[in-house]
């Protein structure tokens, strides 16, 4: 009896969480979707509507560009910094690390919006992809460095020491041994960076002016008509497309790296 109650309660909670996702996969294919969950004759007309909107299409491209650029810069930089923090020891190491973490929550937060805007304006980087990517990289580095440092800490130094004794220079150790061993960790932070950039709304909304540079998260506004009524069908379809790259990225990374057990060290 108690068990049955538990199951019912759990089902209720699960349903609560599943509803929005169900909406997201059904609404785009519905000719007249509402905010409620409903099943109708499947159609692709909403997607046609989306692709007829040039700002929305460019938004997807912009999102991809901004997220990929941020990912490609922040991932290696975070990894190298994390490696240094993990392996070298220098005065003030821990203080610096924790100060950075503290700072990151400020930098990427709303509180830094005004100074950031002023800074970008002074640098002439308002309404430029470069400026936005710089803000993203700066905001995301500390946290991801911290995650990466934890990962590097878990790699035994013996690998690198073995490579040194085998005749490598420190640079060769880094390229041949340390970076390949860091790959699973890099994949994880790459996804994290990509996702947080991809889904960011506030930064591009404030730092980019022209509609032609807006990412998808901002471009979704073009699916409100003149009086502010949302075109639910189009928004649903656009959201569906918007979710897609992230899911694909997760799947690829999980398949390629996943959680792997490392042999070669017996302990």
């Amino acid at each position: 009896m108690k068990r049955a109650l538990c199951v019912v309660a759990l089902l209720f909670i699960a349903g609560l969480f599943a509803l929005p996702i169900l909406w997201l996969v059904t609404a785009p294919f519905n000719e007249r979707p509402t905010l409620g969950l409903q099943f109708g004759k499947p159609t692709l007309s909403n997607f046609e509507g989306v692709f007829r909107n040039p700002t929305a299409v460019r938004g997807l491209r912009n999102s991809l560009l901004q997220a990929a650029a941020t990912m490609l810069i922040a991932t290696p930089v975070a990894t190298m910094a994390a490696y240094a923090f993990s392996r070298a020891s220098f005065p003030g190491q821990h203080t610096i690390l924790y100060f950075l973490i503290l700072l990151s929550s400020v930098v990427s937060g709303v509180s830094a919006m005004v100074p950031l805007y002023v800074l970008m304006q002074t640098l002439g980087l308002i309404d430029k992809h470069v400026g936005l990517v710089m803000v993203y990289v700066g905001g995301l580095l500390p946290t991801n460095m911290f995650i990466m440092k934890d990962f590097v800490d878990s790699i035994p130094r013996a690998y690198e020491e073995a490579a040194l004794v085998d005749g490598s220079t420190p640079r060769q150790v880094l390229l041949n041994i340390a970076f390949p061993l860091c790959r699973p960790g890099m994949a994880v932070i790459a996804v994290l960076i990509f996702v947080s950039t991809w889904s960011n709304f506030l930064m591009p909304f404030i730092l980019l002016r022209s509609a032609s540079k807006a990412p998808a998260s901002v471009a979704i506004y073009t699916f409100f008509n003149e009086v502010g009524i949302p075109l639910i069908g189009l928004i649903a379809a656009y959201s569906f497309i918007y979710t897609f790259p992230v899911v694909v990225l997760y799947l690829i990374v999980n398949r390629k790296f996943g959680f792997r057990f490392y042999g070669g060290i017996k302990g």
Binding site: A162, I265, K266
Partner: peptide, 19 residues
């Protein structure tokens, strides 16, 4: 540095490069 010493070392945990 180690590379200029022409020595070879076997570690307790072998430290074979897993990749």
């Amino acid at each position: 540095p180690p590379k200029n010493r022409n020595v070879a070392m076997v570690f307790q945990n072998y430290a074979l490069y897993p990749h």
